[in-house]
Amino acid sequence: MKISKRDIGIVDQRNVSLFRLTNNHGSYIELINYGATLVSAVVPDKFGELENVVLGFPSLDGYLNDCCYIGSTIGRYANRIGNASLKIDKKKYQLDRNDNINTNHGGFSGFHSKIFDWRIEKDSIIFYCKSPDGEGGLPGNLQFSVTYSWNDNQELSIKYWAETDKPTIAYFTNHAYFNLSALKESALEQSLAIRSSNILENTEDFIPTGKIIPTGKLKFWNNRIMDKISWQANGFKGINSYYIFDENQRDKVQCCLVSGLSSRKLDVFTSYPGIQLYTGDYLDTREIGMHGLSYKPFDGICLECQHYPDSTNHSHFPSIILRPEDRYEEFITYKFSLDTN
């Protein structure tokens, strides 16, 4: 594994660096320590052409001006919390209202805009930080790290670790937008399979009602994404739903995305109990991306492996409370290959 590093700017008097991890096939991923962000994943298509299959920006300015969490590590918590409030051991905490009356993706102090410390270990980059007690309204000094690894099997492994000195909530994900055609077609043209029979019912502003309902028409089993979304007067209405995995075996593919145009395939493995599928309805960037244009709705889709959103406000959802005696350890693996069907 070849790992290179170059500085790309300074934020708050701290260096921001770009890391490239290249395997023996010439495929590579790129990361920056601003937001512990995945910048690119460059893998071959059926003709052997290497192209970037995640949305990203060619300069730091793109990330500083981004409001779509492109490629970012999401923390201290992923997804939305209703009414920007929660209880831990009967004590109420008020969080940032950064999504109307709700809070989303860690609020105003989310990890997506943090400058992370880093170190290199063999085939990995480890980004780490401390989130102080009270940040974003949450209790506890949180120690956090995310490890990105890349190998010759075209597997991108992301491992999350955290500890706290007070009971708090913690769950993390990556917010990469995938397009396996490298933007030669809309991401909606690609086919998706999710090993799930149930989803969380949402309100209009994407807050879980507490009901677990059948996937119904939103079930994906090698279906073109376009065929599952609806047309309304103001345009397509995409999907922003949490899918509960039917079974959670770490060695089993939980989700699979395929581009018929490029024949690239993405298999997703994870320790998390479900995945948030977001089809990028609100994707809109002012900056020009790596693909030579600004990004627009449905250019990429997010496959955000994570715990149930808004869990602390629904007692029958699995707990996301992290306690001082616990250690948070979860993983997501994105495996790239070619579809041979």
Rank of each mutant, 00 (worst) to 15 (best):
A170L: 11
I8P: 04
F116Y: 15
T103H: 06
K228Q: 09
D133A: 07
E247M: 05
G62H: 06
Q306C: 04
R76A: 10
Y272D: 10
S145K: 14
R119C: 11
I10V: 14
P208T: 13
S197N: 14
L95M: 09
F245A: 03
Y77D: 07
V54K: 00
L218K: 14
L266A: 02
F144Y: 14
F331A: 08
K46M: 11
K87G: 03
N179I: 05
D12H: 10
Y34T: 03
K92I: 09
S145F: 07
Y242G: 04
Q306L: 06
L142Q: 10
D267P: 02
F172R: 04
E135H: 03
N65R: 13
E304T: 06
L257I: 03
T279S: 14
S197D: 15
F144N: 00
F220Q: 10
P58D: 14
D205Y: 08
H307V: 02
D299I: 00
N151K: 00
I275F: 07
F269H: 10
I239C: 05
G137Q: 10
N198G: 01
S230Q: 15
V253Q: 02
I101G: 01
T168L: 07
H307M: 14
T73P: 01
K122S: 13
N222H: 14
S4T: 15
T22F: 00
N174G: 13
Q143C: 05
R20G: 01
P273G: 10
L18S: 07
W221Y: 13
T333G: 00
I169N: 06
N24V: 00
L64F: 11
F127W: 08
I74E: 04
Q276K: 06
I213K: 09
V16L: 09
H307C: 12
R76V: 09
K228C: 12
L303W: 04
L283T: 02
Y328G: 08
Y282E: 10
I10N: 15
